[in-house]
């Protein structure tokens, strides 16, 4: 009784989606996020529907499988604007009205009409650890062994004040919601400071997603201005709207002052100047500029995590692709990341 009541409540809630954005899929997902019947989630843990939008590379399939398994039950996968890749047996293709398709799948999942999808990866720890070590935790001594399946981070020189503390190296992406879709970065972090960065895979090209208004919205989101970002997104999706009101919203939000001056500067233009230029482009005051190129990985070391995320979101997609040459040959099968 109580459970069926909860299921009814859940059915009436917006469908919780985790979007995986592929090639040319970003604008469509951004427009879908404005639909009242769906709610885009920043992590798979909060979602029930995995929505793959646009074609993704073969090398990203292991990452997609892991994300699929990170969705809690009940879960379902929908492929939109692309065909399901081999290795995703229960996936479904969506044609036409995606919001309705997502809503239907969500309702079926919540009422139990649709069976939850099975795991794609084996339910095994990354390394055998049970029963090993003094307390059965897999470790040896203070730092050795593989406690709970993974080795501990080891100390390294700090860039700020020379304290030798732990350096954590991990791959971020290719579908991390705060990074441009497809971008796979190997970052070494000490606390929240980026020590070194490597691009393992470039982001996906987004042919239709690069209007100035959308770019402004994408930069406002990591600044914590989700409400303002949504207003810009709505105007971009509708292609009409009062730009004066948006101008006031941008000024009053303090976004221009919140970005540290000089952050992410390439060829004499920092993020603050980019934001201002995009907004002027959206208003028809400025024309697109062709700016010199550098490398994204040269901008990131020494930045704090929040600044690094801002820098990664501060370029036009065609320019970002030029800034992200992979640091080594991509054989489509990253051994150390996926």
């Amino acid at each position: 009784m109580a459970v069926s009541g909860l299921a009814r409540l859940a059915t009436s809630a917006p469908a919780a989606i985790y979007p995986v954005v592929g090639k040319d899929g970003l604008a469509a997902v951004e427009d879908l996020s404005l639909h009242p019947a769906v709610s885009l989630q920043p992590t798979p843990r909060h979602a029930s529907v995995l929505l793959v939008s646009g074609e993704i590379r073969r090398g990203d399939h292991p990452a997609l499988r892991r994300l699929h398994d990170q969705l809690p039950h009940p879960r379902a996968t929908l492929w939109w604007r692309t065909t399901p890749a081999p290795g995703f047996p229960q996936a479904e293709n969506v044609e036409g009205d995606v919001a309705r398709a997502v809503e239907l799948v969500w309702r079926q999942l919540m009422t139990g009409e649709r069976r939850s999808e099975d795991n794609l990866l084996p339910d095994e720890p990354p390394a055998a650890w049970r029963g090993k070590g003094d307390h059965g935790q897999g470790g040896e001594g203070m730092m050795g062994g593989k406690p709970y399946g993974r080795p501990m981070a080891m100390t390294d020189e700090d860039q700020r004040d020379g304290l030798a503390l732990d350096a954590y190296t991990a791959c971020f992406g290719p579908f991390l919601s705060v990074l441009p879709p497809g971008l796979l970065l190997e970052l070494t972090l000490q606390g929240d400071v980026v020590q070194s960065a490597k691009v393992l895979r470039a982001p996906f090209a987004q042919a239709v997603a690069d209007e100035p208004l959308r770019r402004v919205a994408r930069l406002l989101r990591p600044l914590g201005l989700a409400g303002a970002a949504e207003r810009f997104q709505r105007t971009a999706a509708a292609q009409t709207g009062d730009l004066k009101i948006l101008d006031r919203a941008l000024r009053w939000s303090g976004a221009l002052h919140a970005i540290p001056p000089g952050l992410g500067e390439i060829a004499g233009e920092d993020i603050r100047a980019s934001l201002r230029r995009w907004w002027e482009q959206a208003q028809g005051i400025a024309s697109p500029a062709s700016l010199g190129d550098g490398r994204l990985v040269d901008l990131l070391p020494g930045l704090e995590w929040s600044e690094a995320i801002l820098v990664a979101n501060s370029f036009e997609y065609d320019r970002l692709l030029r800034l992200c040459p992979p640091d080594r040959e991509d054989d489509g099968d990253q051994e150390d990341c996926s």
Partner: peptide, 13 residues
Amino acid sequence: YLGGSDPKVHAWQ
């Protein structure tokens, strides 16, 4: 959650 990547190192640091 790292956006699909598998962490190789323990997050305890």
